[in-house]
């Protein structure tokens, strides 16, 4: 969806959110070098990394002229600095790879904020952007169901991932509400002034 969107004008996609996602996948999938889980797992990791960088490239390089930088003004250091600090303090293991993994989990939970901030600034979103956001939010929300399943049937429980996943899903809730009440009824998402 993002690729398609980038090809038309006035994408209103937050380049900052996409940069953060590229950083998220880079720091999380460093375990590509140390552990192998499955062919599916490895290929999805590579696809995520490749797509996130391709999206950043499209926004900042190839389609620089249509990038709406004036509305993409969220200060990402306000996310990266606290998230970086927290990943040093609260992690499973004080090792470089594990701290970077924790950083990526925390950062992912808030990486969408520049995008939501951009929508609140412009007061509207293209319908395709809202579909993208909906499925991005749904992706982590479905993990909540998966974690309950895994807790009961496999005894698996990762507190860091679960708390961050809940935070991430909560951030999308407001948007989910608008998506269901407006976009699914065929209206364009526009916020009252």
């Amino acid at each position: 969806l993002l690729f398609l969107r980038s090809w038309s004008t006035r994408a209103r996609i937050s380049g900052k959110s996409q940069l953060l996602f590229a950083l998220v996948f880079t720091t999380r999938y460093l375990d590509l070098f140390t552990s192998f889980i499955s062919l599916y797992n490895t290929s999805m990791k590579l696809i995520y990394i490749a797509c996130s960088y391709a999206t950043v490239y499209l926004i900042y390089m190839k389609f620089k002229a249509t990038y709406d930088g004036n509305h993409d003004t969220f200060r990402v250091e306000f996310l990266i600095v606290p998230v970086g600090g927290l990943s040093f303090l609260v992690n499973h293991d004080f090792s470089p790879l594990e701290i970077l993994w924790t950083f990526s989990i925390y950062l992912e939970s808030v990486a969408i904020l520049p995008q939501l901030f951009m929508i609140s600034k412009t007061g509207e979103a293209e319908t395709i952007t809202t579909h993208y956001l909906f499925f991005l939010g749904l992706y982590r929300a479905l993990y909540l169901v998966n974690w309950i399943w895994r807790y009961y049937f496999e005894g698996f429980f990762d507190l860091i991932a679960v708390v961050a996943g809940v935070v991430q899903t909560v951030l999308y809730c407001d948007f989910f509400y608008l998506y269901v009440t407006k976009v699914l009824k065929g209206k364009k998402l526009s916020l009252p002034a």
Binding site: S35, I37, Y48, D93, P96, E98, L100, W101
Partner: peptide, 10 residues
């Protein structure tokens, strides 16, 4: 390069 825990989720 220190090894991290094994995380199987994406």
């Amino acid at each position: 390069f220190q090894k991290g825990l094994k995380h199987d989720e994406l």
